[in-house]
Amino acid sequence: MEFLKISKAQFQLSVGRMIDENFVYGVKAKSPSYEFDRLFTADELCLNYNITLLSPNKYFLPPRTPLMGFKLDGKISVDSMVGAQPGIIIGIHPYDLHALKLLDAVFLGNLKDAYYQARRQVIAIIGIDCLQPWQYSFAASMGTAFPPAGFDLWLTDTGDKYLIEVGSEKGEELCRKYLDASEAGEIEVKQREKLREESLSRYKLSLDISPQLIPEVLNSGWNSSMWEELGEKCFSCGSCTMVCPTCVCFDVRDTTELNRLSGERYRIWDSCMFDAFATIASGENFRPTGTDRLRHRLYRKGKYMLQRWGRLGCVGCGRCIHACLVDIASPVYAYNRLAREARTG
């Protein structure tokens, strides 16, 4: 493991050099929130943010991905749209990198999704520790407060400097090309440990059980009255899933030019919370109520994704808690309550 350090002023100059030569995406203040967006100048980058509206996964699984173009003149002519613009993302928080690892398991598992793979291969990741979590986060109790392997560079804000952990060859190359960083020693690494340790006490929400036990409490909680209680308030608006960094479901649709000569097939984010998500052509809806859909979402996050792809579908970012208009989307509330109900019978 290689550690470097760089002053914040120097880092900003480095970001400017990256922007000169690359597509660089970073966190920008977008009142009242923050959002990942293309950077045009280094001073737009805001690394002391608490949460972004959407996770940076939108660069790997965009809300709308063209799958193919075609002509309608009787013959199928399918043009490949697989490809990606190389770039650098700056400012990914640990929980969002955990979520990206789940996307890797989904889209680079048995079947390789060429669209996802192309983006994943050419977009570098520079992350940063989340030392000041927002009030909705419960990442500490989900085990996602610190980054997993898989970043190129990782920053820790140590005051007037950033400590940098180099995570890959691509990261090394970025350092060589753009960063005037000096070697960091044991003191700085110890300091990072202390900062991380201290950040854990700042989380306001926490899961009362080990995350590994979530599937177990779900196993006993299918018939809990909680589902009806929460589900009957649901607007089926899908906000909880749109902001979720591990939501991967999509619809496949066609669109044509107005002249009806050519068109495009694309996939677009969809939501299991929408009322028609499980409806078949004959009109039968296999998840007809808000209760059915809310329960499915929380089982998927807490059990099914773990079974199928080896990782929990909740990283504790808290975005869904904040996004829900009627305060029913919280996974930490649901899992804690089911755990309590399981204990008390």
Binding site: G83, A84, Q85, L111, A114
Partner: peptide, 11 residues
């Protein structure tokens, strides 16, 4: 500088 992947689309 678009990176073209050769793997065939599943779609």
């Amino acid at each position: 500088m678009i990176n073209k992947s050769n793997s065939e689309s599943l779609y």
